[in-house]
Design a binder for these strands. Structure first.
Lengths: 397, 397
DNA sequence: TCCCTTTGTCCAATGCATGGACAATGTCTC
DNA sequence: GAGACATTGTCCATGCATTGGACAAAGGGA
């Protein structure tokens, strides 16, 4: 993402400000001296930077910590609500906007159904949802992050194409920035979702793949600590890879796409065929919960198809951590295990053994990911800045 | 690759030195003022940096250029032989070491067959090849870059496992650095090969995938301008992804790996079966060259199998540029077109239309890639530093 | 010939991290 | 309880980086 540009003292300062802020955010509460040890900066420099952070409210002194044989340190933290984030999910079935704090907690939310809105009407609906949630915020927001299904030029804040809304070349980022007077960041929904795990998630690592399976199927990548979007912003569009050239016809017009065998509609379709009448997602989840063999079988097969498709990625990328999210994740462990075992069957055993699959969120991954996008871009914050030593003292000076 | 660390005036300087050097390397001949325009640095700073580069021999003044209405500029270039690189390919069938200049031209080379060497004997053979080629260099070398098949910890310069040589946890990098007194960089052979295209290749772009198909099949990735190795250095190990669970038994012990259907041995095996006697690669190439239907058919099917496997990557990563190299590339256009068309059949059409497949080198990709690795790591040079404006004047000041 | 543009260098100013010194404030040992 | 020692946070002089203005050199164009 970052391109070569000239460096000057100002860049040096900004770099170190981000580094100090990220360290305090990640390791709080921590003293100035502790930050100095972790980052390799001198105590002098850290103090200087912290002074600015205190003045801007990004940091706060929260009293003294225990002494380790000398003067007791003054502990510093980044208050969770030092800034408010607005995260937005312009999903196929609903538009959701939420006020999110710096720790990834949702404070307020507004939901509206969106299934039938398109064009300018959908645009008005989106603006409306965002304005309503900002009215509930109780303070100024840092900016807005948005996840949208479709092909999104994240750099320009432009929707290249979003089929469900009939949006093409819509400069949503600029429109909203002009309207709100705040920075606005756009991303594809799956590319946003992966950031929710990367930024707010429990474990650390520079590489991460999120697979979001619901009505559609898509993936998002974090590679070398940065979101990877591909040359034309289409990275992660795995839903229409052909897995069975003789399979069912997909909504994209071709046969046997992954979506025709592993998505929610595919599962519901299978189940409906077997039962002989339409089945809702709620009923399917219910039958699955009650361990009905038919439901288990259908869900397992859907998981296996997804896993087979992912096997190629396990080998090709050797990324250790896959997170499975979206509506399908509501089927829980049995589904995830089918995915994991099928992926393992396809992949080189040494690499498969190295790979972990986890269940992610069903509902709010896009909202949280959009917030995380805003936070990383605007503040440079990641909960786990890879590269920092695990323990203090490594950078001892 | 680059991890967050503190920034200081020294880092600023190093960053700008790399930037100036890379700009001169890429755009030579160019004047100091031209570099200043492209990079955004002041003429003062550029002059200061260039002074150091001239002193170290990394740059050279080559006379005056035409005036554009003012004082004629002094043109500067990076001489191709300002430094000598040693690139090494410790391949399955031969060890090759070469002296390579900064433009990717091979000046000297030494080849030895290696098929039966393993363990310490293979290590001695490798050292011997490197020393022999360095004797032919006619000048001091900048360092050594090495490509090895297997699982390589590029950061530590350690061979985690290389089956053909029976090497496990061999700290080849340290051993050679101690022995030669020069910096040594290691990488997996395919991960090195992709750098040959990225650094010395004709076109520019931040993302690139090289697929090397020979006796084995592997891939190398450049993602966001950096080599991508995966969490455990296994990125690109696509040869043992199962493409047909009922297929032939692979040397890895499983059935239907990609290597069993798309590698050189697979093609030769198929051809031998059909003809009824053993066929060498030379004969196969010969028959293919003469457009014998049988050979065309066998090669086409091998290409299609590889293409199907790559289709998933086209969708998942949306990387525009694939380069197909290795011994199979000797089959040329017909093979490549089979790969491309099968990949296209599997992938989402919008993404497939965006993707180009090219033929890469048959022989020297690993040697050149290993040289490129050394050059980028040691000098920070890439022929196409993405992010520089295409034309002068964009960063006008 | 005169004017203007471009190039490359010189120099003072500014910003930033450094490193040593120091006061404040703890713990630990005798 | 007193003294030795360690740790924290700040102050100040120093070094190093880019910047920006000024200037001389060198060339084109009217």
């Amino acid at each position: 993402m970052e391109r070569p540009a000239r460096a000057t003292n100002r860049e040096t300062r900004e770099h170190n400000e981000r580094l100090v802020l990220a360290t305090i955010y990640d390791r709080s509460p921590i003293s100035r001296a502790g930050v100095a040890r972790l980052t390799g900066l001198t105590r002098t420099s850290v103090s200087d930077v912290v002074e600015g952070l205190l003045a801007s409210g990004m940091c706060r002194e929260i009293g003294h910590g225990p002494s380790t044989g000398g003067k007791a340190p003054i502990l510093i933290e980044v208050p969770g609500d030092a800034r408010l984030l607005v995260g937005v999910d312009l999903g196929d079935q609903a538009f959701t906007a939420a006020i999110v704090n710096l720790r990834g907690s949702i404070l307020q939310r507004v939901d509206v159904p969106s299934e039938n809105a398109d064009g300018d009407e959908a645009l008005r609906l989106a603006v409306d949802v965002i304005e309503r949630v900002m009215g509930l915020a109780g303070g100024p927001a840092l900016g807005v992050g948005i996840g949208v299904p479709g092909l999104i030029d994240a750099r320009a804040g432009m929707i290249i194409q979003s089929v469900a809304r009939d949006w093409r070349m819509l400069a949503l980022g600029r429109i909203l920035e002009d309207h709100l007077g705040l920075p606005v960041y756009l991303a594809n929904d799956c590319q946003a979702a992966v950031l929710a795990e990367h930024v707010f998630g429990a474990t650390r690592g520079p590489n991460l793949i999120m697979v979001k399976a619901g009505r559609g199927i898509g993936a998002g990548f974090v590679i070398n600590g940065e979101p990877f979007l591909g040359d034309g912003y289409g990275a992660g569009e795995i839903g229409h890879t052909v897995v069975d050239p003789c399979g069912r016809t997909c909504r994209c017009g071709r046969r046997g796409c992954l979506e025709t065998v592993a998505s929610v509609p595919a599962v519901l379709g299978d189940l409906s065929d077997r039962i002989g009448r339409p089945v809702s997602l709620g009923e399917a989840l219910d039958r699955h919960q009650r361990r009905e063999p038919l439901a288990l079988e259908v869900v397992r097969r859907a998981g296996e198809q997804l896993g087979s498709a992912l096997g190629g990625l396990v080998d090709a990328l050797h990324v250790r951590r896959f997170v499975l999210a979206g509506a399908m994740a509501a089927f829980g462990e049995p589904w995830m295990e089918a995915v994991a075992s099928a992926a393992s069957d396809r992949a080189l055993s040494a690499l498969a053994a190295d790979t972990t699959f986890e269940l992610g969120g069903v509902e709010d991954v896009v909202v949280l990911g959009a917030s995380a996008l805003l936070m990383t871009r605007e503040l440079g914050l990641t909960l786990h800045p890879h590269g920092l030593p695990e323990r203090e003292g490594v950078g001892e000076r």
